[in-house]
């Protein structure tokens, strides 16, 4: 535990950049490669949207259930609350009991909101 290396330099991130570069080039090259290699015979049927062989009706980009949206909003809120816990969790021992209680209060409020959301049946899919 003594040798905890807290410091991190931009140099440490260079390998990540390297890996990113490799990944990007892999993805792009593959796409280009298939584009060049594959045969191209275009027919109208082939270019139409696939709906299990049934006649396509309407545009696919239409409105969808509000529930998904609700989930997205809840995610935004809860995920940000979770972010608050990271620094606390890492330094949890230093904060001791007081920090624990404070975080419990925070989580208590979070939980109250959470229970409210559940009770409001915002997460029920029927």
């Amino acid at each position: 535990m003594e040798s905890v290396n807290l410091s991190s330099t931009p140099v440490d991130y260079i390998p990540i950049l390297i890996q990113l570069g490799v990944a990007v080039s892999f993805g792009v090259l593959t796409i280009i490669g298939t584009h060049l290699i594959g045969p191209k015979v275009r027919t109208e049927n082939k270019l139409g949207a696939f709906e299990s062989g049934v006649q396509v009706i309407g545009n696919a980009r239409q409105r969808f259930s509000i529930k998904y949206f609700l989930v997205a909003i809840l995610f935004v809120i809860f995920d940000v609350e979770v972010i608050f816990m990271y620094p606390w969790a890492v330094n949890f021992r230093e904060f001791g009991v007081e920090g624990l209680i404070e975080m419990f209060i925070f989580m208590g409020f979070l939980l109250l909101g959470f229970i409210y959301v559940i009770k409001k049946r915002a997460l029920d899919w029927d």
Binding site: Q19, L20, F26, G27, I31, T34, L47, F50
Partner: peptide, 29 residues
């Protein structure tokens, strides 16, 4: 590799290609 690549007529061409690329990049890094 040797299969025909199809981009549907109604698709958004650029994003249609970006999608899988992004997927593999994030997976790889």
């Amino acid at each position: 590799f040797f299969k025909e690549e199809i981009i549907p007529a109604g698709a958004h061409k650029v994003l249609f290609v970006v999608g899988p690329t992004l997927a593999i990049i994030t997976a790889c890094i």
